[in-house]
Design a protein around this nucleic acid. Structure first.
Lengths: 214, 214
DNA sequence: CCCAGACTATTTCGGTTAGTAATACTCCTA
DNA sequence: TAGGAGTATTACTAACCGAAATAGTCTGGG
């Protein structure tokens, strides 16, 4: 309940790995990666092996996780990680207390739309259609994952987030649809005026930019 | 129109910087950063100085931009960059032809919700409320930016994307509202059962995890 | 029986990216 | 005229990511 000393500064990805462990399983780096690809991927992260293993070493160093080697016969046996009580306490506190930050969004499709003045509208249209389809696919996958998950009471939160993700991708799909019709409107307008002046390339004036920046 | 030789491989952030230049202004790295913070930030990127300047050097090296030094009196005069015709052609082709990739989303708030089983529901609630407010703020800022922008025909695409961004943050806000009520439902259920068994910490069984991974 | 192919498991590598602080000038204003 | 905000660029370091190398295990078909 009470928060005494400050949490050690770890970045979110470390907390994410510790969070995966916080469900109580004894897991290998490989397991962790697989599980993250099932769950965290939809709203946070599809980690690489190098990161997972790096984080695990770090977590063990600071005492939030312990590992034991399961020596199947001989060389390089696999290493299973477990969260420690300190680790459990730390995730719990982090999840409760960390400052709220805006999610990071890197939307390549929108970047290309933003630059649309220079592009072929037909290809932009094709891009949006494909993006729409990809979003729908992600939505479906999120639904499938939510169904595959356990329905024990402890799973209420992951389920909630998966539902959130489903809606997120549904919204993404719908926004693509809206933009598609906006694009069609622009294309229609351009077609109408294209017979008149064909080579004119609209360009922002200095005055506009300055106004915008002000 | 025709796409002859393949585009040089640059990553999206380079294209983004070149894209900013493609509006025709002669800009310094500092200007670029400021403009990116106004526009790209909402859907793509809030770049750091080091990145901007690095990209600009690279862009000049491959001939997509040129620069001239404006020597204000003495030392370290500022350097203004302009896009070259080759650069213009390249952005145009990239924006049309690049493969469509799913946007990257890193949602710390959802990560913490996902880990909710270990946290204090009241604090989760406060986190969601704050996230809701931040989303709304972003929405308002996107609207303000759209209004501040020029309404020339060449600006149709940036405007379209800003409208998209406004809706994006509105949707984000609405999803937070939905989750808020779901969380309240969970809290109500927990309160009802808390008198019975207080210390039980729900934990996933091995069998469940294996099923999920299968 | 044994070989191919798929799966498990971890490490290494190089290049990219990101954040932050340091530097240094200019312009405004109290 | 000193301080603060704004302009402009560079340097440093840690983090990150993808891809591939390595290597053992397990399964089914010939």
């Amino acid at each position: 309940m009470a928060s005494e000393e400050p949490l050690p500064h770890l970045r979110p990805t470390s907390w994410a790995v510790l969070g995966l462990l916080s469900f109580g399983e004894e897991l290998s780096g490989y397991d962790l990666k697989k599980w993250a690809d099932w769950s965290l991927r939809f709203f946070y992260w599809a980690p690489s092996y190098s990161q997972i293993y790096g984080e695990l070493r770090k977590l063990e160093e600071i005492g939030y996780a312990t590992s034991r080697v399961v020596n199947k016969d001989d060389v390089r046996g696999k290493r299973l990680y477990t969260i420690t009580p300190e680790g459990e306490q730390a995730v719990a506190r982090w999840a409760s207390e960390a400052p709220v930050e805006m999610p990071v969004l890197k939307h390549g499709v929108m970047l290309r739309m933003w630059l649309g003045h220079a592009s072929d509208p037909d290809q932009l249209r094709a891009m949006l259609v494909e993006h729409r389809e990809q979003s729908e696919k992600m939505r479906v996958r999120a639904v499938a994952d939510a169904e595959g998950a356990s329905h024990e009471p402890g799973w209420a939160y992951p389920e909630m987030v998966l539902r959130w993700a489903e809606r997120y991708y549904a919204d993404e799909r719908d926004r693509a649809d809206t933009m598609l019709s906006e694009l069609d409107a622009v294309r229609a307008k351009q077609r109408r005026s294209s017979t008149a002046k064909r080579t004119t390339r609209a360009r922002r004036s200095s005055a506009d930019l300055r106004q915008h920046r002000a």
